[in-house]
Amino acid sequence: MKNRLRVLRAEREWSQQDLAERLGVSRQSVNAIETGRYDPSLPLAFRIAEVFGLPIEAIFQRDSEA
């Protein structure tokens, strides 16, 4: 699964730590999700969407869609 986390974070000038604190997870988690090494659970994906104020599908895409 691909995601636009890095771009969305950069647009808001948030560091990985900033985003991690907003999500209530570790910076490593944000880094792992951003770099595609970890796909978040559905509840965490919803939290990420909520933090960015976007629908999940605007943040995460299947590899075939990218």
Binding site: G24, V25, S26, Q28, S29, A32, I33, Y38, S41
Partner: peptide, 8 residues
């Protein structure tokens, strides 16, 4: 551990 990535 409430951080799912660290738990994994």
């Amino acid at each position: 551990l409430d951080d799912e990535y660290l738990r994994m």
